[in-house]
Design a protein around this nucleic acid. Structure first.
Lengths: 143, 143
DNA sequence: CGCCAGATGACAACCAGTTGCAAAGATTTC
DNA sequence: GAAATCTTTGCAACTGGTTGTCATCTGGCG
């Protein structure tokens, strides 16, 4: 088990390669993404983008996130009781621990768990396409 | 790892104990729940209930499910890309494997995984309140 | 520079779910 | 068992997150 670390890829290049145009709104949104290390939702991205370019619309944020998602550049996570939150797809796969008090998202990875999941699926006659593992918890009171 | 098995508790008694009234709509919904072993969503429950008593409203289904959920009698699962689905809370905790082709939900449980989750959370300074583990997969082609 | 498919902003529509409200129903009290 | 009381219901309107529509705009090639 270990925390994962992110490094940002060049989304602009990726977008271009996907045949998409580099527009002002997109550049702005990419800039937000490059500056962030947390897991913002669409509204947060919209607000941060608005501060840079007030003409950006929320629809464009959603459209851009969807585009990036389809390109595999970002991941969308629908954590319990809230809007979807996005994260860079860079780095290896990981799961999430959500702090119930702050909403903070901590990434972790466990090969053992992944392996057990695959075993279970196999024993039930299935092949895993993807999975979702989310731990919801609170900081332990260090007494 | 093993499949879990359900047996139905007496929801009517539980409702009464919680100080709620046993009304016709509620009785109908409970009857549906008693008859089902799958993981229906609100609309499915509504439709099955309508067949018995066509005057039932969808709001009442939602309200009743929420009530039962608060009583701990049922669990609500928000699987990917669809409405919440409900299941009896009877039996021990388990996780879910969702068949991507059919939507079928298979229950499983792994003490090893649970244990690893707790270890991970602890090592990150957290205490798990609850978790969500869902495997999304397809039946293996038995070649 | 001019073109035009692709992208945008504004806003309507959508979906799952919730809520306000007046009427109907379940329990309790006598 | 009827009245009083308090809960629940059906309906319609509303919500929050997200997607669709469409007239207008613009990036990037020629």
């Amino acid at each position: 088990m270990n925390r994962t670390v992110n490094h940002k890829p060049d989304y602009e290049k990726e977008l271009r390669r996907a045949g998409a145009r580099i527009t002002r709104p997109r550049r702005t949104i990419l800039q937000i993404l490059a500056q962030t290390d947390d897991h913002p939702d669409a509204m947060e991205i919209y607000q941060r983008a608005s501060a840079i370019d007030s003409t950006i619309s929320l629809s464009t944020v959603y459209r851009t996130m969807k585009l990036l998602e389809e390109m595999g550049a970002i991941h969308r996570h629908a954590f319990e009781g809230g809007p979807s939150r996005f994260e860079q797809a860079s780095g290896e796969h990981h799961d999430h621990l959500i702090d119930l008090d702050t909403g903070e998202v901590i990434e972790f990875h466990s090969d053992r768990i992944e392996q057990l999941q695959a075993e279970i699926a196999r024993s039930l006659g299935y092949e895993i396409v993807h999975h979702r593992l989310e731990l919801y918890g609170r900081k332990r009171r260090k007494s």
